[in-house]
């Protein structure tokens, strides 16, 4: 290909790059800029240097809020991946045929509906009169019945369970699909070596699914750290600050409390946290192939 032709290729790249620059890179630069000021979004901003970042890292409430996002990783990531692996290794090829199609379609429903809807549905399920409590009472565990999203000890785990519900189907199907690609000979070999199901899982299944697991973790960790929709709808961050997450706090600080600088600093911190968590996962699971 001629040099001119290759340069003219930029014409193809430019529209996408322009939209990206205007609506992502420029705002990102502005977020960083705002984060260095005290600004109420209306009047003239006051230079703040790194004050806002200092606040993010020293304010007890904000640290707790960031901590909440990490707690959510347990529910958004570990449960779907763990449970997905369990189901996948039990299912292996048992998921073909029309049965498989129906199950697969159902498991994908949470991926298709807006998270807002998941939040609404589960708020109802977890409410005092909801199905969860109804079930508990039906099996004689009425003493456990409670307002799951309203109590301090159970609110964050309950929000986490909503996320787990949303992400479980995707992870399961991904892992099942990945597992169906594993060469059966590997299992035969393991069995001939006398490996039990657990050894088999550790020696064959897990290593072969490295890439799928990495994908699941990446998707779900981002979903946990950057969560907003579910929390906004299900608990609005309460009780106390028990379920407030960085995404919600950024929104509140920027638009309700008009502390644009602090909101922006938190936004930058959130962005960095996502990168710091996601890059090692990528490296671990893709390292050998890159």
């Amino acid at each position: 290909m001629t040099r001119a032709a290759r340069w003219s290729g930029w014409l193809y790249v430019l529209p996408a790059l322009a939209m990206y620059a205007i609506f992502v890179l420029r705002p990102l630069g502005l977020t960083f800029q705002y984060s260095l000021y005290h600004w109420n979004g209306i009047g003239v901003a006051r230079w703040a240097g790194l004050d806002n970042y200092l606040t993010v890292f020293t304010d007890g409430d904000l640290l707790k809020i960031i901590g909440n996002a990490f707690v959510l990783i347990i529910f958004f990531s570990f449960i779907p991946v763990g449970l997905g692996l369990l189901v996948a290794s039990l299912v292996r090829r048992a998921s073909g045929g029309p049965f498989g199609t129906v199950v697969r379609t159902i498991l994908f429903l949470p991926q298709v509906i807006p998270l807002v809807a998941a939040g609404i549905a589960w708020s109802w399920l977890l409410s005092s009169n909801g199905v969860i409590n109804q079930l508990l009472r039906a099996v004689g565990l009425g003493g456990w019945a409670r307002a799951w999203l309203g109590e301090f000890d159970t609110a964050l785990p309950s929000v986490g369970m909503i996320g787990a519900w949303v992400l479980l189907g995707l992870c399961t199907i991904l892992l099942v699909t990945g597992m169906s690609k594993i060469d059966p000979a590997l299992y035969e070999a393991a069995r001939i070596d006398g490996a039990g199901p657990i050894r088999e899982f550790l020696a064959v299944t897990l290593p072969s699914l490295r890439r799928e697991i990495g994908v699941c973790l990446t998707v779900t960790v981002i979903a946990a750290l950057a969560s907003f929709d579910i929390v906004y709808i299900a608990t609005a961050g309460g009780p106390g600050l028990q379920t407030t997450v960085p995404g919600l706090e950024i929104y509140r600080l920027a638009f309700a409390q008009r502390q644009v600088g602090l909101a922006s600093a938190l936004a930058i911190v959130l962005m960095v946290l996502v990168l710091v968590c996601v890059l090692p996962i990528q490296r671990l699971t893709r390292g050998d192939k890159a």
Binding site: L25, R26, L28, G29, L30, F32, Q33, Y34, L36, Y37, W39, G41, I42, G43, V44, A45, R46, W47, V260
Partner: peptide
């Protein structure tokens, strides 16, 4: 560079 560029003037000024 992009960030530095954006940081020229105070927001809202």
């Amino acid at each position: 560079a992009a960030l530095a560029n954006a940081a020229c003037s105070a927001p809202g000024a």
